[in-house]
């Protein structure tokens, strides 16, 4: 019995080696399959969306569903790509988890307030922009900080989210400030309310959502970067990428896009509706 088991042991060892080698080589199985074809077969597109971002994608406590502009836009685009009965499946992502999940194929596309940047474009393919945001800061009402320059001194603490490019930008605009990166926006907002930082920085659209829910906090100083949001698909998925761009154009031309902008942003104080409509 012991001899048999020791042979099993050898096989087991070989197996571990093969598996770990497979894992190291970052297998390309994800790139080989045609995601669009699979989605048409299953009649479902799996989207990675935010669940902690008011206006874009927020988990509703009442019915445990994610609601927001991006969720609605994803549904409209799914119908354009798969037809009337096409289903959109939503998976919650954070800025930290979205890139690995797309690379691994857990999700087909990311629509999660993700700015198109050259570094990210090396890893994923972006559609053209579906929403133009800009980075801003949120502070407590009555705070001495009036704009991003007010943060550029020793001792200032800025809150951001792991994996968002706002934390990189803020280092350029306020290099002397200390940046704390929390795991998602609801954590970052809670930290701001607990006084763990002087300001919270991310894109204005997200911050507007926060200030609606929390009247004691406001967006100050306007935007200091341009943040065009794109839908990310995995590299090598040209058919899906093209379908996404076409679907976006169709949704825009049909007037659906402007309806969604109106639905989500018409009563947001300080939001430029005319600039956002297409």
């Amino acid at each position: 019995m012991k001899k048999i088991l020791s042979k099993i042991g050898l096989v087991f060892a070989l197996l571990i080696m093969v598996v770990s080698l497979g894992a190291c080589s970052q297998s390309s199985s994800g790139a080989k399959r045609d995601v669009l074809k699979d989605d048409k077969q299953s009649n479902t597109i799996t989207w990675g969306v935010k669940a902690d971002t008011k206006l874009f994608g927020l988990m509703e406590v009442k019915d445990n569903r994610i609601k927001g502009f991006e969720v609605d836009l994803a549904k409209a685009m799914t119908k354009q790509i798969l037809g009337k009965n096409g289903k959109a499946r939503f998976i919650q992502v954070t800025s930290q988890t979205r890139m690995p999940l797309l690379a691994n194929g857990n999700i087909d596309a990311i629509m999660a307030t993700m700015t198109i940047t050259p570094e990210r474009a090396k890893q994923v393919d972006f559609t053209r922009s579906y929403f133009d945001a800009g980075q801003a800061i949120l502070v407590k009402n009555g705070s001495p900080i009036k704009n991003v320059k007010g943060l550029n001194h020793k001792g200032a603490v800025v809150l951001g989210v792991v994996g968002s490019n706002s934390v990189q930008n803020i280092k350029k605009f306020a290099p002397k400030a200390r940046v704390l990166q929390l795991s998602d926006y609801s954590q970052a907002l809670t930290a701001l309310k607990s006084g763990q930082g002087d300001a919270l920085t991310t894109d204005n659209g997200i911050l507007y959502g926060m200030s609606i829910e929390n009247p004691g906090y406001s967006v100050v100083g306007g935007t200091f970067t341009k943040e065009p949001y794109g839908i990310a698909t995995a590299k090598g998925q040209k058919p899906l990428h093209n379908a996404m761009n076409n679907a976006l154009t169709k949704v825009e031309n049909s007037g659906q896009y402007n309806k969604l902008i109106y639905k989500w942003f018409h009563n947001v104080r300080g939001f430029d509706m005319k600039g956002a409509e297409r």
């Binding site: 894992a23 970052q26 800025s95 930290q96 890139m99 690995p100 570094e119 990210r120 890893q123 792991v162 994996g163 990189q168 704390l180 990166q181 929390l182 795991s183 954590q187 930290a191 763990q196």
Partner: peptide
């Protein structure tokens, strides 16, 4: 400490993983 931005090893790991885009 990673949950409260405590600058520990796990926190740095999360930051580096998002910055380098090489999570594994």
């Amino acid at each position: 400490l990673a949950f409260v931005a405590g600058f520990d090893l796990m926190y740095q790991g999360n930051v580096i993983a998002s910055d380098s885009l090489q999570s594994m």
